[in-house]
Design a protein around this nucleic acid. Structure first.
Lengths: 340, 340
DNA sequence: TTGTAGGCGTTATCAC
DNA sequence: GTGATAACGCCTACAA
């Protein structure tokens, strides 16, 4: 690789010292007008740009942040990346994206490498499923102990003290289910994840509360808990065919469209016979036929907020004070699948 | 931020020199067995990890690569990220993801910053629409001139000499359209992008050739070219309602589902009245009802291949030799929307 | 007004 | 066997 021009090169060429060059380029009043101009002209001509690695070494900050997410084939995380990247770039930070692929080990390796290697100034992380299942958060606690800022996003845990960005999952699903009830649904199925996933758990609670508040019986046979994304068709199909339901609340996009497909294949109409509402505002629900109502969690905004919290920590020198949790409001997007 | 432990710290603590520590940790036979062990034990105890920034400065390589893509709310690019990230991580590289948002300016800024700033060792890029429209590739040519490896992916141009990874777009769409014809379609609409987008252009050519080879007339009124993603509904709707078609080939996911929706709203059945086939194997087509046939471009593999090409360049010191273009084979995924 | 020197953390060369 | 030194590119306190 062709070597890039350095301060030293300029200094030699112009027969001045390195510090003169450095100061000139920073418009230091220490340096005489004419030398300053001469240096700047030369630097511009040769397209000089300071070497960020050297600056990082000197300043002990890299202007990189790590974003660790469980997967990417999920519009929610795609949006998060977008939001994070946008704000980070505006503020002069680069985003290193790491996928844990829902694996505890990969999450740990990623974090350890970046944290100890000193490649990033801070982390934004959404926990992998496996991590939540094992409830082993030492890698994160250690990051915090090192004094590296850490912001958790969406999939969080109380066992790590740090800034957090979440949505009001329980309320979001409460509203969604209430909406179904208002549309006249009486027998509403819930398609959710296993309980160790923080958001799945909260969304389940919203469902339960909504039923209760509207005087509907909680019928456990209308609830199906799915572990993993592969092979969700079967349990959903079974539920749809064996239970006499008139509404479905699904805690993510995939479950919602899968349920809709099962309903339609079963010869029923959406929303006339069965109304459906999902969670997460991705393409899948928007472009389904009929378009599926959903709870928007504003992934992009969550990403933006997370970066801002992180940068705030990075820019203040006072250690630790107190941590805050920002709750982003969900909003209900009513589409065809839940009646007019 | 708490300072991380350095060689110097260890040296002071153990009352040996820095070089002794460095060599011990690298298991250099120069150092006596016992000092070596002592140092290693101490380092392990305090969880010493070398500072990668310092190493980068010394070695003039960062072990970071930049991936520049136009957008992320598109499963194809999501898959690409996955593939890139996977192989890069395996090889000890980090991936800095940048979104150009289809903007020429942002693409230029991203590249200039990272290239001149010395934050990355190489680039993988998929061109923004605006860049292809303007045909201004100076920022990329300059990267090449600097001797930084550059791999173009999917959206490429002949005007930049570098390694490339593409799919056989023309053949992929040829196969797709041929499949429709074999299913008995006679009047096949083409929903494509404007022509300056390399892949849109090629896919259009495949369509034309397939018609010709099967003795079907090319009817320009069956072709609609859409600029941008917003507001594709109207032209598609108009086409579907005004033309008597029995097949649709769309060059991306969104156009395909939008067409399907228009067809269904128009009171026709898919695939009985109108067969549909798309391009790109994302969730949108897979989970549509009916599931939509498509041409898979294997985004993840493209990403993997791109990184491998990039790393190969990075690891060989010989400059420039010749550039290669890897063509990934598409495959036809037959689903419900195009008949049995 | 300009230059010198030391340091950020590491490695490699060379001297002891 | 071990250590001193210089270098990667930049910044800055201090000296001239």
């Amino acid at each position: 690789m062709k070597r890039k021009i350095t301060l030293k090169d300029i200094a030699k060429e112009l027969e001045v010292s390195i510090s003169t060059v450095s100061k000139s380029l920073k418009d230091s009043p220490e340096i005489g007008e004419d030398t300053r101009e001469k240096v700047k002209a030369f630097a511009a001509l040769y397209n000089y740009k300071p070497n960020n690695i050297a600056i990082s070494l000197k300043n002990r900050r890299t202007k990189n942040i790590a974003l660790i997410i469980p997967e990417i084939v999920n519009d929610f995380f795609g949006e998060v990346i977008g939001g994070v990247e946008q704000v980070a770039n505006e503020k002069g930070y680069n985003v290193i994206v790491c996928l844990s692929n829902e694996s505890f080990d990969k999450e740990v390796v990623n974090i350890d490498t970046l944290a100890h290697g000193g490649q990033v100034d801070g982390f934004i992380i959404s926990l992998s499923k496996e991590t939540m299942l094992r409830q082993d958060y030492n890698h994160l606690i250690e990051v915090e102990n090192q004094g590296m800022p850490l912001v958790m996003l969406d999939r969080v845990t109380e066992q790590v003290l740090c800034d957090k960005v979440i949505v009001d999952d329980a309320r979001g699903s409460y509203n969604a289910v209430s909406h179904l009830i208002e549309q006249g649904c009486k027998k509403i199925a819930l398609i959710t994840t296993v309980d160790y996933i923080s958001v799945g758990h909260l969304r389940t609670q919203g469902y339960i509360k909504a039923l209760g508040d509207h005087g509907l019986e909680l019928d456990p046979s209308l609830i199906v808990r799915i572990d993993g994304i592969a092979g969700c068709e079967d349990p959903i199909k079974k539920l749809v065919e064996n239970q006499d339901i008139d509404g479905v609340f699904a805690v993510n996009e995939l479950f919602a469209v899968t349920a809709m497909k099962a309903v339609q294949n079963h010869g029923k109409k959406v929303p006339q016979d069965v109304a459906i509402i999902g969670f997460s505002d991705g393409k899948l629900l928007k472009h389904a036929t009929p378009a599926v109502s959903t709870v928007s969690q504003h992934g992009e905004e969550m990403g933006r907020v997370a970066v801002k919290m992180l940068l705030k920590r990075l820019q203040s020198d006072k250690e630790e004070e107190s941590f805050s949790t920002r709750v982003i409001k969900t909003s209900l997007i009513k589409r065809e699948s839940s009646g007019s």
